[in-house]
Design a binder for these strands. Sequence first.
DNA 1: TCTGGGGTCCTAGGACCC
DNA 2: TCTGGGGTCCTAGGACCC
Length: 349
Amino acid sequence: MARWVLHVDLDQFIAAVEVLRRPELRGRPVVVGGDGDPTKRGVVSTGSYEARACGVHSGQPLRTAARRCPDTVFLPVDRDLYEDVSAQVMATLRGFGVVVEVLGWDEAFLAVDGDPEALARQIRDRVRAATGLECTVGIGENKLQAKLATGFGKPAGIFRLTGETWFEVLGDRPADALWGVGAKTAKRLEGLGIGTVGELAAADPDVLARHFGPTIGPWLVLLAQGRDNSPVSDAPHVPRSRGRETTYQHDLDDWADVRREVARLARRVAHDAAGDGRDVGRVIVKVRYAPFFTRTHGRTLEAPATGADRAGVDRIGADRIVEAALAALDGFNERRPVRLLGVRAEFAR
DNA sequence: TCTGGGGTCCTAGGACCC
DNA sequence: TCTGGGGTCCTAGGACCC
């Protein structure tokens, strides 16, 4: 077992990649999100630090960002480009000959020995040399500590957080500073008189189990204590599901349109699943109605289907996936305007 | 702040079986 | 007959993360 975990996190990754190919944007507020049109429905994927300085943040509606920061350059999301650059970054990290666990486009854990600060500096240098991008490195005795350390090192820094310094750094912070505690859980904890990381660390696991369930309750306490024994793993990620969803610029009022769109999404999902070489066991349809509440209904296939349009004695797999999606759609009774439709395929086995 | 799109994991409740 | 308790599976929803 390696002594240290490093968490490498690219700084403003998506915005930085866009600035790399348009150097004239350096130093300007840049927001990447949706199709790049801030008058449409969509949210900020990433804003440059200049955009953040005027109150723009990830997840914010593009409209709001445009209002907050009128001279912002808005750009559409270009997933293929980010995937390519991400692959370069991860290859650079693997070049250190250590176990690398990828955590999305712009983050990875590394299990390392030796002088972690020295290694962190080398990582920053090599990532910069290979890609022109800046990153921050968090150092910890486990993944949780390393992940939280990164937040204190941003931008382009290095920060070490250990069991020894954990409470000094985090004890008085709100519980949602933890990785895995969001606004909802923080609010519920507040109701139990638990506001800070320190208070959560001192809480009774049995009491939390009663409120949050037998797994999450006790886990929350360990989280607040900075304890985590999950290994850094480079085992290839095996996807559990594959989905497609769309928010419509104008709500769909006509259920015939809804059916047609669900069939279209299901066909895309079937195609994606076939591309992954996976069999589909269950299909789930998601409907978000205009007042922004979401419902899901699913259908389990009688036998797993491939999404491939291959001829056979049986019906073609893609048709069965589409049919399952339409059957799941029949589970929705409310016929009010629809804002978003999604179809997700869960893989068999 | 009129709130994307891609995922993962956990929980609660009902069905069903012995 | 008017009614237990436990285990397991399935489904919908919730919460979180990038």
